[in-house]
Design a protein around this nucleic acid. Structure first.
Lengths: 196, 196
DNA sequence: GGCCCACTTGACCGATCGGTCAAGTGGGGC
DNA sequence: GCCCCACTTGACCGATCGGTCAAGTGGGCC
């Protein structure tokens, strides 16, 4: 769907994505109908299909946007870090903060990971982030900052800690304080440190 | 739905749950229709509603069964462990092995966690397991085996590593070898060990 | 052999789904 | 002032959904 959009059109497209994001996050993707989205916005159903090929295409667009935003934040966080292990720590902190700040996007990621129709799209973004992290881990190993091991596997371990703790924050089990992030960072860094 | 079931009835019920488990795991819960299940089994639709109140009730029953099985395995693993940290290690290993062996159940857990209609049921089981783990962590802290910290938060960190790595095994990113489990255990134990 | 009831069948129900489309509407450029 | 085309409307489509139910069927117990 490559349409010539006016400024007003772009705005409408953004509105649709924003509203759909909140509905999908709250109700789930499958249980939320296109009619529910358009009626909730007070527009005709045709508006939806003017901007998106399908409900599936809409979610894909939302996920792509979210991934782009997350990646931006991650890259910015690494900008002025000196050592590899400092980069690792900043990466963890930035990712957790972003995920805590963007509960709706986070929930959509979680859902998308369970559905083959969408998970492939996530994989690419995830694997890029993991490769980046693995590069930092390798550098840290070479510098003797952390114990040797499979960098990719360990990157995923970091991701696992990040994902699960953020999930708890959104469930209200944990308060969204820096203490959670600090604990995660400490746990991860010591986990990487290994025996010495 | 509390029906008087004959042996044949119990068997049919088990068949339904087994077949539905594989369909839900492969296609997703919402996209899999009741008709798809009954037709796939070659039985009339009424059979389904003889044994279950609704599609939702079926998934709930499946999840409850799976949780019971997991918990059994976890408890068995802790039986002959001497120290708290040994119990922690065995708990992690048992959970990971079970999750790797039961890909379908694991996928359903992942989905259920994203849907409010089912996640509440999971919470209870999860919180019991986490409380148990936290108790072990507290004991290990008191025994000076690991660094002090919030036991519940740290239990969840362990759970996060477990979940994410198992997920990768099921995605085919990692081989289901002991190396994955060994790395997870090592990462977690050193993460708990902390500075000293 | 006959009866009971656990079990099975599949047509049927109203609701709702994702998606289409012919008929407008209205704002910006000329 | 008019025209073009981006945008909007909402009735409508066929398909499919979860769930119901009256009518059987057949195995086990007396």
């Amino acid at each position: 769907m490559d349409r010539q959009l006016t400024q007003r059109g772009e705005e409408r497209r953004r509105q649709l994505m924003a509203y759909a994001t909140s509905r999908f996050a709250e109700n789930g993707f499958h249980p939320t109908s296109v009619a529910e989205i358009t009626e909730g916005m007070g527009v005709g159903k045709g508006v939806f299909y003017w901007y998106f090929d399908s409900k599936e295409a809409l979610l894909r667009a939302i996920l792509a946007d979210a991934q782009l935003d997350l990646r931006r934040r991650q890259r910015a966080a690494l900008a002025d870090a000196a050592t590899p292990s400092e980069r690792i720590e900043r990466g963890i902190r930035a990712s957790m903060r972003w995920s805590i700040d963007h509960a709706d996007y986070f929930r959509l990621f979680q859902f998308a990971a369970t559905d083959e129709r969408f998970s492939d799209g996530l994989r690419k973004g995830e694997s890029v982030a993991v490769k980046d992290a693995a590069t930092q881990l390798r550098a840290a190993m070479d510098a003797g900052e952390i114990a040797p091991g499979d960098p990719v596997l360990l990157s995923h371990a970091l991701l696992g800690v990040h994902t699960h703790l953020v999930h708890l924050v959104h469930r209200g089990v944990l308060e969204p304080t820096d203490e959670v992030i600090d604990t995660a960072v400490s746990f991860c860094l010591h986990g990487l440190l290994g025996r010495r």
